[in-house]
Design a protein around this nucleic acid. Sequence first.
DNA 1: CCGTCACCTTGATCTGGATCAATTCTCCTC
DNA 2: GAGGAGAATTGATCCAGATCAAGGTGACGG
Lengths: 275, 275
Amino acid sequence: MTNPLALKLEQFTRFDGAERARLDFLAAQPSKTYARGATIIAEGEKVASIHLVLEGLAARAKTLPDGGRQIMAFLVPGDLCDVEVFVLEAMDHDIVAIADTTCALIPAAMIEDMLTESSKLTKALWWSTMTDSAVLRERIIDHGSRNARERIAHILCELLIRYRIVGVTSDASFPFPLTQKELVQATGLTSVHVNRVLQQLRAEGLIVLKNRVVTVLDTHRLKAAGQYEARYLHLTRTERRDPGVSDRAGDLVPATHHRLLQDATHTLKSILGRN
Amino acid sequence: MTNPLALKLEQFTRFDGAERARLDFLAAQPSKTYARGATIIAEGEKVASIHLVLEGLAARAKTLPDGGRQIMAFLVPGDLCDVEVFVLEAMDHDIVAIADTTCALIPAAMIEDMLTESSKLTKALWWSTMTDSAVLRERIIDHGSRNARERIAHILCELLIRYRIVGVTSDASFPFPLTQKELVQATGLTSVHVNRVLQQLRAEGLIVLKNRVVTVLDTHRLKAAGQYEARYLHLTRTERRDPGVSDRAGDLVPATHHRLLQDATHTLKSILGRN
DNA sequence: CCGTCACCTTGATCTGGATCAATTCTCCTC
DNA sequence: GAGGAGAATTGATCCAGATCAAGGTGACGG
């Protein structure tokens, strides 16, 4: 199986053989599969090993006093569910499986060893954490300043690009195991309204949603509809690595980014110089 | 001057003399004062030194296509504005001064040295970062699942407790330099509505807001109004350190937390054991 | 002491999205 | 292939919060 964690972190920097082997070793740890709807980690739990999503789709969610649930972030293959393990006593939210989901269970000590032994991998993990925060901030903007249509379009754009990065898809289609109920929990809208917005996006010819697969028919218009700017994902290397990835992240990456990268080599060197 | 960074991190763990001295050294770096309204760091900027808020109030914000602004997080004394410096090419959002704000400018290398030399301080920084993420997630819940009244009450509770932790206040009053416009940007509501909700909270005898100072008259009812549960701040040591801090964080810390901490000493030891 | 500028407050009206209430699709299971 | 249960859709109505439109209020500089 390909290693989504390595694919993701390669957005940040290139790895040598040893680093790559270490990442592959992490992803090859014993895995566990959770059925759609299952709670992977519950709020209040103190986890001993770090869950790396290998396949499927999970979400960070919190159960509300009224029994409802708010989804705060989606976890696609390559994402780590609980890096807080090192320092926090207990999870302050749930991790739930949106699709049938397989996670590698990486002993915390294995990551800690990595952190003391490779400063490049440490930086990569730090990058991943910072990017996760940026995604959370983008969700705050969604909810605070974007209407239903923008919000949904934004989430679709983000999922597409994140799936592409880890090679789950290479065209404009991606798995969409979410039920409307879950899209409701993620967007803070009602199912009736989510349904109507989806209809509208379909009617406008922006997307097709069938059999739990979304196909984006018009990337540019969907981006515009969601005010989508991928800068916050900090895909430093997308346009430099190889044509394959370029295709994958495709035109969702902003043009300004391309320009920035023209002469970014020495910048990167200086950032990573302390290696 | 007291060191708000040390006060904050002491919520996570106790430090020895050397560690404490290092934290004090960081806070004693050359500082810069920004006037209310100034942009401390602009989106797209590549910062060389890390900004630690010493006094005042700042915010993470993003400027929207329509010219508006969304505030995503508040930065109180003790908060670091830009730990992403190590790994990201450029800031993906602005840091703006809400009040006149003083920041210590800590050279990135100084933090990096700390990370290689003290695993306890590394963990403390990691804790701080994880807690910041938890605060972002709480803001998503605010916007996705709480109405105007709950949202504002929640933010007030959070600011009070965060100010208490770093010793800015020791009673139920705290500086509130926000103009209603900024509360609007943080809550995603309109100024008219924010105004009405504030009136209501005043009329109900929950708060007094005068001369840029909020006084919480009824902590319990305000907590209830905002569905406030401080667990997400992970104030591990609040109840154990000394009566002073206990007073400071006060009854905003949930009771379940107290119980959890009864026999948490060995848990903490195991977490920090690798020191 | 007067203008003015930024902020706060209040009232009237409007609307995006919520709520309530059926119906129609899927699948799935037996 | 009948029966059901979760999911998607559609229509009708409602409401929290937006928008529009005036006033107040207070802190200044001249």
